[in-house]
Simulated assay, not measured.
Amino acid sequence: MVCTGHFLNPHLPLEAFPGIHKFKGQILHSQEYKIPEGFQGKRILVIGLGNTGGDIAVELSRTAAQVLLSTRTGTWVLGRSADWGYPFNMMAIRRYYSFIAQVLPSRFLNWIQERKLNKRFNHEDYGLSITKGKTAKFIVNDELPNCILCGAITMKTSVMEFTETSAVFEDGTVEENIDVVIFTTGYTFSFPFFEEPLKSLCTKKIFLYKHVFPSNLERATLAIIGLLSLKGSILSGTELQARWATRVFKGLCKIPPSQKLMMEATEKEQLIKRGVIKDTSKDKLDYIAYMDDIAACIGTKPSIPLLFLKDPRLAWEVFFGPCTPYQYRLVGPGKWDGARNAILTQWDRTLKPLKTRIVPDSSKPASMSHYLKAWGAPVLLACSSTYL
């Protein structure tokens, strides 16, 4: 198993920024940034607005003289808590939301999504709205809007060029006396320990069967674990990948022959080159769809109709409640006897750390109430399954 993941080699696109070699200040990639000490009182330009760029900008805004945050495309900003203060991922990643998202038109869902996100704060007013024609993206950051609101962070367009001490932006504005430029421009992944043609093939996700097995191997003796982007927990996805890979290695699960996999991947690559279909290899995968796909290969995907017949209470929690990894321990290889109880009591464990001050005679919400509340606005939250 190769578990090196996405974040192997820093991507530092200096050639895309004219004049950067003239710049006399400090230049570093986010991989080199560790702590805010050493940046006190400085004017800092952060390039790139992903999760890393937002986190670094917020942290430095507490000590730096000024933080400028440059973005080409903008982003939607999500908080870690959702409605009623519950954890966002537990509220958003649910099977019945995914079902609704498949039924309703995507344009309608996007409209609902934008209204809901702008209700927290207007992204256009904060300089965060998505550039027209660009694909929508999301980051998770609770403090960024407040930092922009109080002036600790200033949003900027993309950088057009650098001088020795300043940056010129696409909107024509110039920021002088910049001390530090931090590139939060992501990473590239590679497999330098492989020989060709495997080395080049594995860098193309299209040639990885279900993002795990290289298509050109006659025997499935190699698995790439964690080289995926999910709209949910990557750790849960990698665990399921590893469970599948070990069973394939042992011969307990089969995958299609390499000739078939290579033919299908090659045909898809040609269609992408000709513009017939879109290249989605860099897009985040739907969490529940991908987890269910791998679980079906193992034999651990829960059957909702069967659950409603055998155990209606559990079925209700599985379909309407958070899609947590316990669901893939209910049946099949690796079945855990405690999975049912873990699912039925997951909200108790979630809220337990918050119960440090109990108000006399206050009613404790039952687990069912969380789902009854959610039913009150199913359409408004249907698009939440696409947030992460």
Rank of each mutant, 00 (worst) to 15 (best):
T4G: 09
G5N: 01
F7A: 13
L8S: 09
N9H: 12
P10S: 05
P13M: 10
P13G: 11
P13W: 06
A16E: 06
H29E: 08
S30N: 03
S30A: 14
Q31K: 15
E32M: 14
E32V: 03
P36I: 09
E37M: 12
R43G: 12
L45E: 01
G53W: 04
G54E: 04
V58D: 07
R62C: 03
T63Q: 09
Q66C: 09
T71S: 11
R72H: 00
W76P: 06
V77K: 07
Y86C: 08
R95N: 04
R95I: 07
L104P: 05
L109C: 02
K119F: 15
F121W: 03
H123Y: 01
H123C: 12
S129F: 03
I130Q: 01
I130V: 12
I130A: 07
T131W: 04
K132P: 05
I148E: 04
T154F: 00
K156R: 12
K156S: 07
F162S: 07
F162A: 11
T163W: 11
F169T: 01
T173W: 04
V174D: 02
E176L: 15
V181I: 07
T184C: 15
S190G: 15
P192K: 13
F194S: 10
E196G: 09
P197D: 04
L208C: 09
L208V: 10
N216G: 12
A223Q: 01
I234L: 14
I234W: 10
E239A: 10
E239K: 03
R243K: 08
W244H: 11
R247L: 12
C253Q: 07
M263F: 11
E267I: 07
I272R: 02
G275H: 01
G275I: 00
D279M: 04
I288D: 00
D292L: 03
D292Q: 00
D293I: 10
A295M: 07
S303V: 11
L307T: 03
L307Y: 06
L309N: 13
A315N: 02
V318H: 05
C323F: 06
C323R: 15
T324V: 10
W336E: 15
W336T: 14
W336R: 15
D337G: 12
T345H: 14
Q346D: 11
D348L: 12
L351Y: 04
P353H: 03
L354G: 12
S362C: 14
A366R: 13
L372G: 05
A374Q: 11
L381E: 10
A382V: 07
S384V: 05
